[in-house]
Design a protein around this nucleic acid. Structure first.
Length: 306
DNA sequence: AATCAACACAACCGCACCAGG
DNA sequence: ACCTGGTGCGGTTGTGTTGAT
């Protein structure tokens, strides 16, 4: 038995949104908050599919959206994040406040891809276009595979393949920080329903912006608590998963980690991509100290970024 | 001025994931 | 364990705009 369609297609508008439709959607969300997209069109008096409403809001009408061209810093950040995450546009968008996944995806396809090609770089693998055979290391939270194909397809594989070389031990915790940082930002910038919306069956949350931020932070912490003694699986597989102890100080105190946390994202990434990590640490067998086997730079992999 | 191609971006579609029953 | 509904994500398509001829 197939699933029911998300909306009654025969009675829904398609194509470009009119100003009136936009205004209806804005007015409705202003009063009732986000969420319950399926029932929203009817409630708001819109002849639109719920998904369409959600997309319109997230990609175009949301008040916190940044308008205008991408800056050079944003360009760089997108390229770096893409080299780490592949086509995980929502994760990338999570690192660029005010930008949407759709916007970044379009920007990538129309600008950055061409720019990289012109520089002789394969936009999918971030390697030189004429490079033929390479060695890559693939890691997941459960399995580890080494391939010699060099064929990296981050958009279809649920694995991000990375090469590292000359990694310093402190980079490991920085990489972990990046992972958790991305997760944190992802939860922050994703359209999360507020509890009150859920509890009140899609009525207004009545929260101020500050309350909402606090709520989201709290929500995030609750999520972390629920993952106690678990590895955090972000599907990033950049390095070993952080432990609870490594995650906790991120939001408090003046620890080195929390200072790192406050750095501009591209600065953090700059440190990471030029940093180093040994293979066994990368695979999760060691923690913040370099293992003996790797103290001579044997078995290091280079992470390419140009 | 008209036509066409290339480009930019908004919107759609199908699938996957997750929570709840 | 399975089903269903709601939601989010990534790939693709459609359409308006701009530039070249």
């Amino acid at each position: 038995m197939g699933r029911s369609p998300c909306c009654e297609k025969a009675h829904t508008n398609k194509g470009a949104w009119t100003k009136e439709e936009d205004q209806r959607l804005i007015d409705y969300i202003r009063v009732h908050g986000e969420g319950c997209w399926r029932s929203l069109p009817k409630a708001a008096g819109l002849l639109r599919c719920g998904k369409s409403c959600r997309l319109r809001w997230i990609n175009y009408l949301r008040p916190d959206l940044k308008r205008g061209n991408f800056t050079d810093e944003e360009d760089e950040l997108i390229i770096k994040l893409h080299s780490l995450l592949g086509n995980k546009w929502s994760l990338i968008a999570g690192r660029l406040p005010g930008r949407t996944d759709n916007e970044i995806k379009n920007y990538w396809n129309t600008h950055i891809k061409r720019k990289l090609m012109n520089q002789g770089i394969d936009p999918q693998t971030h390697r030189p276009l004429n490079e033929k055979t390479t060695t890559t290391t693939t890691t997941t939270t459960t399995t580890t595979t080494t391939t010699t194909t060099g064929a990296v397809k981050p958009s279809t594989n649920r694995v991000t393949q990375l090469n590292f070389e000359n990694a310093s031990p402190q980079s490991i915790s920085e990489i972990n920080l990046l992972k958790s940082n991305i997760d944190f930002n992802y939860s922050n910038f994703s359209p999360i329903k507020t509890e009150s919306v859920e509890e009140n069956n899609c009525t207004s949350s009545g929260m101020t912006t500050d309350e909402e931020h606090h709520h989201r932070y709290h929500h995030h912490q609750e999520r972390e608590s629920s993952h106690e003694n678990e590895e955090v699986n972000l599907e990033l597989t950049i390095a070993l998963a952080p432990t609870r102890n490594e995650l906790t100080p991120r939001y408090s105190s003046n620890t080195a980690d929390s200072k790192l946390q406050q750095q501009a994202p591209y600065q953090l990434l700059e440190k990471i991509v030029t940093g180093t990590v040994c293979t066994c640490c990368q695979l999760g067998s060691q923690r913040s100290e370099m293992c003996r086997n790797c103290q001579n730079s044997n078995g290091f992999y280079r992470y390419y970024y140009y």
